[in-house]
């Protein structure tokens, strides 16, 4: 029999401090934060959500939603203010719709916008939050390979401390993260890194255009130096194993070489050693690997991907 949220205990804090205080007092009692609910609500409905009760984060939106670049609010951002060494801070309760519409992200990294737009359908994007997607750590989560490719860090707050952890270290086990039971993920930090002639790709392969969990997700970033050689190549995947991962071997193989069909083929061949996809309800290991190889080959060969400095409008 399905259940609904009103069958459960819910604690609603007034602000972040109160939430963290509650979490400190009740740590290890099985209380779990509830953000947009796009993942949790389906688990509650199916009776798969094991929790003593839920900490309703909705009142924290004032503090934890929004996109800031070096501390400047999005509204205040000026064209040309992007600079090497800065950070973009995305509040954990920022919705995917807000990511999709963000002019700052469109300029700095349009991959984030594309990943947000590829997640679920519009209704889910309106509810789902950046932090919720990171903490629920679905193996096929669309935004997760992007955080990996961008060397993002997560900000974790508890009543007594705040720490930052590299996203790649934060995800250790399938569907688990390094968050402590009294910590709340409060933001994700994206380092701004200038690459020469950047090329970007985000691709979700799914059974249909919206409202489907991906069979696989591929995101790629690469610069080309003055000599036309690859610099700082990132090839990141979702749905190709229990965790989002980077194909470091294929990245290294491409690094320092000029794009070509032969280089693309070499990088694609390298993937077989790095990816461990499985058969499941949505697709097969064979198909996932073929697709990963083909997309990698086409990207490294220089056929697919978009130029990095983008003028397109958010949808």
């Amino acid at each position: 029999m399905p259940t609904i949220i009103s069958d459960h205990q819910v604690f609603t804090p007034r602000n972040l401090a109160e939430a963290l205080q509650f979490m400190a007092q009740h740590r290890d009692e099985g209380w779990r934060p509830l953000a947009g609910g796009s993942e949790v609500m389906t688990h509650i409905y199916d009776n798969r959500a094991a929790a003593t009760g839920w900490i309703n984060l909705a009142p924290l939106r004032d503090q934890l939603a929004g996109i800031h670049e070096d501390g400047i609010l999005e509204d205040g951002i000026q064209e040309g203010c992007i600079h090497e060494g800065g950070w973009v801070r995305i509040g954990a309760l920022t919705t995917l719709t807000e990511l999709r519409r963000s002019a700052v992200l469109q300029t700095i990294c349009p991959l984030i916008r594309r990943a947000a737009a590829a997640t679920g359908g519009v209704q889910r994007q309106n509810r789902a939050t950046v932090g919720g997607r990171i903490v629920s750590a679905s193996p096929a989560g669309e935004t997760l390979p992007v955080w990996l490719a961008l060397d993002a860090e997560v900000e974790l707050s508890s009543r007594d401390a705040t720490r930052c952890v590299a996203y790649r270290q934060f995800i250790q086990e399938p569907r688990q993260t390094a968050i402590a039971s009294d910590e709340l993920l409060t933001a994700i930090m994206i380092p701004i890194r200038a690459r020469p002639n950047p090329r970007l790709l985000f691709r979700k392969v799914a059974s249909r255009a919206a409202g489907a969990i991906g069979k696989m997700v591929f995101t790629a970033i690469a610069g080309l130096d003055a000599a036309g050689h690859y610099q700082d190549v990132r090839l990141a995947f979702g749905g190709m194993g229990p965790l989002p991962l980077r194909a470091c071997g294929a990245e290294q193989l491409a690094e320092g070489h000029a794009p070509s069909d032969a280089l693309g083929a070499q990088a694609a061949n390298q993937l077989s050693a790095e990816l461990t996809p499985v058969d499941d309800l949505r697709s097969t290991a064979d198909y996932r690997l073929r697709t990963a190889r083909n997309l990698t080959r086409a990207f490294v060969a220089g056929h697919i991907g978009i130029a990095g400095h983008i003028g397109e409008q958010p949808s």
Binding site: S207, R208, A209, I213
Partner: peptide
């Protein structure tokens, strides 16, 4: 329809895909 031992495994409208308006 994904069958296993005579039971539909993808018995929900996320994993069993019918076309959406976008498709």
């Amino acid at each position: 329809v994904v069958w296993k031992n005579g039971v539909m495994q993808n018995a929900n409208l996320a994993d069993y895909s019918i076309p959406t308006a976008m498709d």
